[in-house]
Each structure stands twice: as structure tokens, then as C-alpha cells.
Amino acid sequence: MKQPTGDSALPSEPLSGPPTSTGMPTSTVPVGDTDAVRAALDAYRGMWHQLTIAAASSNHQVSALGSHATGQALIALRGMMYDDSMAGLVTLGQPTLSPRVVAVRIPEVPIEADIVDCVDTTSWRKYRARGGLAEDRPVGRRKTSAVVRNTDGEWKVTKVIIGDVDSC
């Protein structure tokens, strides 16, 4: 999987400071087992579930990815599926996730959460669509960062960075 470059990188520390469009300053709150944390993790896991389904199909149907991802995240995931489609690859099996929310930013209600993960792709392998393991494709643990945003009560992954194998 490719790691997006440029301004799509996540901040190394939680954001805090400038006023939002409502005029309220943003702040980072302690992360606990809250509705916002659960909703953000559900959206993140849902994105991976839909990505797994799309990656297993030789025609890489990606329309369902939009139910859990938007913005840079959706563009990056669709790009991965396009690259695999052009290379004649499918990805079978299941990645192993272990996400955790490391920050929640709020003006008046939770609107954004930062997630870190170490996605294990050992059981999620690339194959040639016409048969056979694509042996030259590395698998292993990949450092993954994501931003999940609540917009009008709907949580979606807005940014995702999937690192190289053995990055975590």
C-alpha cells in the first residue's frame, strides 16, 4: 500500500488553538470510552471492512467506501484500488486491526478524532486476479494514522496514512 505524500500527513501532536467556523476555539480533551471514541473507531473499522471487500474483487467496486471515508482518505483508498486494478491484483484475507483513539478535538461537541493503528497485513495477501500469489508484494505490520470527523452526526475517515511494511 502506498503512503500519501505532501500535505496529507497527520500532525504529530493533537491540534489545539485557532477558532473554528463557529468562533469557538478548538481544544483536545482526554480520551476515554466515550460515544465519540466508539463512533470514530466504528467509522475507521467500517472503512477497513469496505476496503477489504473492494480489494477482494477483480473489478474493485469502491462505491461503498464513501459510507465510511471522504476527502483525502477516500481519494487515497480509491487510488490504491485503481493501482491494484491496473496491475491485475486482488487482495484476499483479512487485515488485523488494533486501532486506538489518541486525541479528540472539540468546539462544543466532539467533531474530530485522531486514530493510530499498527495494521497487520500478514493474512491479507495480494494475488494476481487470474490466479497465483503476487510474491513480490511485502506483507507485515504497517503504521497507520487516521483522522475521523463527525459532520452533522455522521462519522467518516477524512485522512489516512498507511505506512510501509515493518513501520511499526
Rank of each mutant, 00 (worst) to 15 (best):
M1A: 08
K2S: 15
K2F: 11
T5E: 13
T5V: 11
G6V: 08
D7Y: 09
D7P: 14
S8T: 14
A9G: 07
A9Q: 07
S12A: 14
E13V: 15
P19I: 13
T20A: 12
S21T: 08
T22A: 14
T22Q: 12
T22D: 08
G23L: 02
T26F: 09
S27N: 06
V29E: 07
P30R: 10
V31Y: 02
G32Q: 14
D35R: 05
R38W: 01
A40T: 06
D42W: 00
A43D: 06
R45E: 07
R45Q: 09
G46C: 00
G46H: 03
M47T: 05
H49G: 04
Q50N: 12
L51Q: 08
A54I: 03
A56D: 08
S58L: 07
Q61L: 11
V62R: 04
S63D: 13
S63H: 08
G66E: 15
A69P: 05
T70S: 15
Q72Y: 06
A73E: 00
L74C: 04
I75G: 01
L77Q: 05
M80D: 10
Y82E: 13
D84H: 01
D84M: 15
G88V: 06
T91C: 04
G93Q: 08
P99Y: 07
P99S: 10
R100S: 09
V102Y: 01
R105S: 14
R105C: 01
R105L: 07
I106Q: 14
I106G: 02
P107F: 12
I111Q: 12
E112G: 00
E112Q: 15
D114P: 00
I115G: 02
V116W: 00
V116M: 01
D120R: 13
S123K: 12
R125V: 15
R130K: 07
R130I: 06
G131A: 06
D136W: 11
G140N: 08
G140M: 10
R141L: 06
R142H: 05
K143H: 10
K143T: 12
K143N: 11
T144V: 12
S145C: 02
A146K: 06
V148Q: 05
V148Y: 10
R149E: 10
R149H: 02
N150F: 03
T151C: 02
D152M: 10
W155N: 04
T158P: 01
K159R: 15
V160F: 02
V160D: 05
V160A: 03
I161K: 02
I161L: 10
G163M: 03
G163C: 05
V165Q: 06
V165N: 02
D166H: 10
D166A: 15
D166T: 12
